[in-house]
Design a protein around this nucleic acid. Structure first.
Length: 849
RNA sequence: GCCGGGGUGGCGGAAUCGGCAGACGCGCCGGACUCAAAAUCCGGUGAGCGCAAGCUCGUGUGGGUUCGAGUCCCACCUCCGGCACCA
């Protein structure tokens, strides 16, 4: 060994990255005999530059991937780009750059930036969704969905973003003001013919999380989004010739005796035939107003619960009473049957409506022995409510009433038990250019026909007019428009909408298994070997978008016989979001985006990685505050020093860093007596080995649980112990060498460069990233002595230092013998002594008086 | 309004099958080195009282259970995220 140079990551980091890449160190081989392990982190949208959030999101799973590989698994950790999407098209409109050029330039730049992170991505499997070699198969999948009846075209009231000039999926409309997820503009409703995927078919199965290990918040969000409600559908006859009974949905059939009116959504098909002539004008005005109103305007009138009586009556099948039929926009056309029975006594919305329009309110379910409340609806529903004024059903509990009334209606053919869901089918067509064209042609004779599979991909034409007009730019290209009907070979028109980019990302994780296959979307053997993904990481903001769509895709493809598993991702972990220093989401417009390049050029990649992992719990994120990055850099500098300390307690001088041990053992009060690690050093090599093996155990456990911040703090602890050991003259010992080797191996996943560099300098075989993960010795994890706190009445009064296996009787004797304990006992005899083995002793004094 | 997650030193955060609150780091104070500075190293650092030994208080607020509560229970306050009239 020669004199250690100054710690400067810039001198070795790029060289190691080049060597790893040249050696294809991270390539996942299909034929590798070790157990396959598929670890995936969400691929990014190529917006232009990598920002600090990308680093944060990728470093966590990279650490786990590296550890798993050291633990002997054949790990695949791929990366790619979700490269279709609106920003590319907006760049074309704003700057006149073609989306193809813009996107390719961004992908190239971000790929380079990604490589500077030192992640173990297997770039040989890269997937880029705007590549025709990829979207060919996205289109092929659409055709399979179409043939399976899971893709269909329908006229529907849809959410339309007036700024982006495009329809949106329900999942892409956010907030109380119903704004576009991308640009924030409030959406409006339009009736348009659109393409849908039949996600509702899988509503029930999507509620089943029993096979997967996902974060509770995501499971809850999906469960709420799917919104399963059990109840009944009930037919109400109407007093009008030739009009069928109106079917309502309710979760509370037990309250039917309190149904004193009916409300239809303004869009309900029975409104027209049931509107009395004298009410026609008012009904038309109300319906037109409801159609015209934006969601914001509807919100502002939310509490008013306005509606119009349409002049007809229905008959309550239980009371046989005539009840008026109203329309109101608080009844939604797309949920349930678009019609409700109004039970004002037991529903707050119905109550407000009945109060406004002076409709009868009749309480039919009450607490046992209770009386009707005044001025409010009674909506409680527990085992303690009973039916009143409900004919033969009076006296039943609410639960019994639900079952009995549903059964009676079914017996009469007037209803049945029913389940409804909030989830709607996924609207996937977009009136934009930069996406995979929907592979459909329209023939006058044969209607919508899928493009034959051997004609895929339907290529995006280069030459179109990007100006947003509300119809797809593809309509401006005549050559693209004209097609041939696959049935009759006659002239046909091509579909010009493209697919939602979430379709691309609903199967990209399958493509990684065989990314270069030109014959099919994926090689079944490879997919069966690698899939499902063992562990997937990404942002929780995709809870009801990507995370739900991907599950739908896998279930649908399973039923088509294309896949043999039920869930795409066996385990999911969500990272938190790094916010700007201003506590707002990072965005170019806010100017709060942090560029990692500035940091890496100063501190190197390892420091930035470690710092990001040290900020706090990985799933929490938080506002950007780089103030403590220097501390993490100093830590790596200490690792650099202790790993290269020479034997004989004479650490080498590090140029630029004065010898840190210059005071050791000479200056009172400066030798580290206050250090917690001193106990370890006093125990000599055994103490250092104890510290080493505790670290091996705990760092491994922390990594596996994504607790990177505490893992790093424990490695700091081991490094400090090494510093003390060096200062105590242990630098040449076996225990010291073992501790340094262990520290480097533990650090390798988080700081891959410095660990490789120091490993190499210690003359160890290349590469540290191919070494086995260290094992700990359980015997060495146990300390020689433990310190037991001694409390009197729950307050700390003294400490005992004993061997871990000291008998309880002996501990009690020692505790009671303590002078400080005796001082607090003041001669009293303890009432009892509580001992928690290995944790503490508490001496309880007699109660006063 | 409904659902979910949080509130711990000056700061980021540790510690929850109830058991030494504040690990680790930042910042700050003091010291070593230096002509000086930077860098580095060593020590101190929750608050109050005390010369000290030590004592008291202290995890959003108010109650409770317990030998013992940041952790459990009840009632609140507050911040963040999700949903948006779902019958």
């Amino acid at each position: 060994m020669t004199t250690t140079e100054r710690f400067d990551p810039r001198t070795y980091e790029p060289a190691w990255r080049e060597r790893w890449a040249a050696d294809e160190l991270y390539r996942a081989d299909d034929d590798d005999p070790r157990a396959k392990h598929y670890l995936l982190t969400m691929y990014p949208y190529p917006s232009g530059d990598l920002h600090i959030g990308h680093w944060y999101a990728a470093t966590g799973p990279d650490i786990v991937a590296r550890m798993r590989r050291m633990q002997g698994l054949n790990v695949m950790f791929p990366m790619g780009f979700d490269s279709f999407g609106l920003p590319a098209e907006n760049a074309a409109i704003d700057r006149g750059v073609h989306p193809w050029e813009w996107t390719n330039a961004n992908v190239d730049r971000m790929r380079t930036q990604f490589r500077s992170m030192g992640c173990m991505f297997d770039w040989s499997r890269e997937v880029v969704t705007h590549d025709p070699a990829y979207y060919r198969w996205t289109q092929w999948l659409f055709v399979q969905f179409f043939r399976a009846g899971l893709a269909y075209r329908a006229m529907a009231p849809v959410d339309w973003c007036p700024k982006d000039q495009v329809v949106l999926a329900r999942e892409q409309v956010e907030g109380a003001d119903r704004h576009c997820w991308r640009c924030g503009t409030p959406v409006i409703k339009r009736d348009l013919e659109q393409w849908f995927f039949r996600t509702t078919k899988y509503a029930d199965e999507l509620l089943d999380f029993s096979k997967i290990d996902w974060p509770d918040p995501i499971r809850l969000m999906q469960t709420n989004w799917i919104g399963r409600s059990e109840g009944a559908e009930i037919d109400f006859a109407v007093e009008a010739d030739g009009v069928a009974p109106i079917r309502v949905f309710t979760t509370r059939p037990d309250t039917i005796f309190g149904a004193t009116f009916m409300v239809l959504a303004p869009e309900h098909p029975a409104v027209a035939p049931l509107t009395a002539p004298e009410r026609a004008e008012e009904v038309a005005a109300y319906t037109a107003a409801a159609r015209r109103e934006t969601e914001i305007e509807r919100m502002s009138t939310e509490r008013e619960r306005k509606g119009v009586f349409i002049g007809s009556h229905a008959v309550n099948p239980m009371t046989e009473e005539r009840i008026p039929i109203w329309i109101a926009d608080y009844v939604l056309p797309g949920y349930g049957t678009g019609a409700i029975m109004g039970v004002p006594a037991h529903d707050e919305r119905d109550f407000a409506f009945a109060t406004r329009y002076d409709l009868p309110i009749r309480y039919v379910v009450l607490p046992r022995g209770g009386t009707a409340p005044q001025g409010e609806a009674f909506v409680a529903h527990t085992a303690d409510e009973v039916l009143v004024g409900s004919g033969d059903f009076t006296g039943m509990t609410a639960a019994e009433g639900i079952a009995a009334i549903t059964a009676e209606l079914a017996r009469r053919g007037q209803g049945e038990a029913a389940i409804t869901y909030k989830i709607r089918d996924w609207l996937i067509s977009r009136q934009r250019y930069w996406g995979a064209p929907i592979p459909i042609v329209y023939c006058d004779e044969h209607g919508a026909q899928p493009v034959p599979e051997d004609q895929l991909p339907v290529l995006l034409p280069h030459d179109v007019d990007f100006a947003p007009t509300g119809v797809s730019p593809l309509q401006s290209n005549e050559e693209f428009l004209n097609a041939t009907c696959p049935v009759c070979a006659g002239p046909a028109r091509r579909e010009t909408d493209t697919m939602d980019t979430f379709v691309d990302s609903s199967w990209y994780f399958l493509r990684y298994a065989s990314p270069h296959d030109e014959e099919r979307a994926w090689d079944s053997a490879a997919v069966e070997d690698w899939l499902p993904v063992d562990l997937y990481t990404g942002g929780a903001e995709h809870a009801v978008l990507h995370f739900l769509y991907a599950r739908f895709f896998v279930k649908a493809l399973r039923d088509m016989g294309q896949l043999n598993f039920d869930e795409p991702f066996m385990a999911v972990r969500n990272q938190g979001q790094i916010l700007g220093a201003d506590h707002h989401r990072m965005s170019k417009s806010r100017g709060n985006v942090v560029n990692p390049d500035d940091l890496t050029s100063r501190f190197g990649s390892d420091t930035v990685r470690c710092f990001l992992m040290f900020i706090g719990p990985w799933d929490m994120g938080g506002p950007w505050n780089p103030s403590s990055i220097e501390g993490v850099h100093r830590f790596l500098g200490r690792v650099w020093a202790v790993a290269q300390a020479g034997p004989g307690g004479q650490p080498r001088h590090v140029p630029g860093m004065p010898p840190p041990q210059s005071l050791a053992g000479e200056q009172p009060g400066s030798g580290g007596e206050g250090r917690e690690t001193l106990g370890a050093i006093e125990g000599g090599q055994r103490g250092l080995r104890h510290a080493t093996h505790v670290a091996i155990k705990e760092v491994g456990e922390d990594y596996a649980e994504f607790h990177f911040n505490t893992a790093l703090s424990k490695m700091m602890g081991l490094t400090n112990a090494l510093g003390d050991a060096r200062d105590a003259g242990l630098a040449g010992t076996d225990a010291y060498a073992e501790a340094v080797d262990a520290l480097l191996l533990l650090l390798a996943p988080m700081a891959p460069h410095i660990s490789e560099e120091l490993w190499s300098r210690r003359g160890k075989p290349y590469s540290i990233h191919q070494q086995a993960w260290p094992a700990y010795d359980a015997g060495l994890v146990i300390a020689d002595t433990i310190e037991l706190p001694v409390q009197v009445d729950g307050k700390l009064r003294d400490r005992l230092v004993v061997a871990p296996d000291t008998a309880p009787d002996e501990i009690e004797r020692l505790a009671l013998a303590s002078e400080r304990v005796q001082a607090h006992l003041k001669g009293r005899t303890p009432r009892k002594v509580v001992q928690i083995p290995g944790r503490l002793v508490n001496i309880v004094t007699p109660k006063n008086d």
